[in-house]
Write a protein that binds this DNA or RNA. Structure first.
Length: 112
RNA sequence: UAAGCAUUUUAGACAGUCGCGCAUAAAACUCGCAAGGGCUUAUGUGAGGAAAGUCCGGGCUCCAAAGAGCAAUGAUGCUGGAUAACGUCCAGUGAGGGAAACCUUAAGGAAAGUGCAACAGAAAAUAACAGCUAGAGUUUCUAGCAAUGGUGAAAAGGUAAGGUAAGAGCUUACCGCGAGUAUGGUGACAUGCUUGGUCAAUGUAAACCCCAUUUGGUGCAACGCCUAAAUAUAGGAAGGUUAAGACUGCUCGUCAUCUUCCUGAGUUGGUGGCUUGAGGUAUAUGGUAACAUAUAUCCUAGAUAAAUGACUGUCCACGACAGAACCCGGCUUAUAGAUUUGCUUAUGCA
RNA sequence: GGCCCGUUGGUCAAGGGGUUAAGACACCGCCCUUUCACGGCGGAAUCAUGGGUUCGAAUCCCGUACGGGUCA
């Protein structure tokens, strides 16, 4: 991920979650905030209530892989945090469904 | 062949493209005030049998090498052994279950003391309601008795015979129970013999308790080092004293408040701790075994918003439970399919 | 990652070995009233779950599941 850095600190997450704009999909949700830097910032937050460690790890990997594949098409200057939708069944998380959600979120927010 | 019991191993495989963590090497570029970090390429390497639950034990860390003793608290509880240690494991004993292979078992003490035992029942622990027998007497009284009946989870050894007014360990035999003793065993205990009818005193200790063994707290978010900016009645070293204070409830003991000198805590960020260890594998020896010893050989994740994924092809049994976070030894719980070895019972055939 | 609590009608909860498991609010049915409200009577609990100890367990012991708190 050449033009993206990971969000790490708790205050970074909080600032994005408070001031960002919410976009929902059928499985994943995203909170996006714009800024003036030349890079993107990515954060993934999966609650412990979603499931056991194996399921949470799998969701994180699928989101990270999808973002990697779609990264080349995006513009810079965004901070984005992906969340898992509470009502969705975490055992049905697949590559295709997350890819579909992520594309619609990028279109809505104007990142593409 | 069928049903069953115990037990061993495994935990999709191979190939290609893209991508991720760590280590090593190489060269330049770059972020940060700093300590330090990032980017590129190549090579190597990269989750489990339970990594889980956090139920025990230990290493390691700091609290004063927890400093000594007593008490209290908690834990364990048949015997012997194994182990660094354990509540674990191995081998046995007793008890219970099963037709058997085999399985289960918190299994010390109830005449050291205290508590509790609802309802029912005469009585729930120094027994007498109904009743049985004898005598007096007449809707009862006196004396003897504890077999029979009912209640209850539990009612003061059981069965049979003798015995008696009626009965009763009252007497005898057998069984059970207690005591003593002999033999075997390291021991739990087993077997035999002798003896006890004063063999009255139920159950509960996963109720308090007694006995034996054992037990300080803290947990890698422990703890150490470096670091920009700003700052405190803050920290460190040496000396001295005993009243209150702290270290654990007490006794002792120690520390510390006081003086002098020195400098920089915590917060922020980075880094160490971090993986070579009571390690794995093979062979030999000792031991019934757990395990121990010796020799050879191997090095196998170390992250910090936290690495294993996506796509394609081939094969099959169509892939369960599930993701390291300081490290080991166990326990418990989850788990698709495949698989090793031994044994039991039933039926048939030879 | 460590440590510590809790789970009882729909909700809040008492009870810490013994008769049919208190109580309040809500809900349902009946009575009262012309009707509603108030009031009266009744109903509704696998004591989270699987074992064990005991004559007897919501209660004591062990395991499991779920929920919550706390430590930077």
């Amino acid at each position: 991920m050449k033009k993206t850095k990971m969000l790490k600190k708790n205050y970074e997450f909080n600032s994005v979650l408070k001031k960002g704009i919410y976009y929902g999909g059928s499985h994943i949700e995203a909170v996006i905030r714009t800024h003036s830097l030349d890079t993107n910032f990515l954060g993934i937050a999966i609650s412990k209530k979603v499931g056991i460690a194996v399921i949470r790890n799998r969701i994180k990997r699928l989101i990270r892989e999808n973002y990697r594949l779609l990264e080349a098409e995006t513009k810079t200057g965004y901070s984005i945090i992906f969340l898992w939708k509470k009502k969705a069944d975490p055992r049905r998380a697949t590559f295709e469904s997350i890819e579909k959600d992520m594309k619609t979120i990028f279109k809505k927010s104007g990142m593409v």
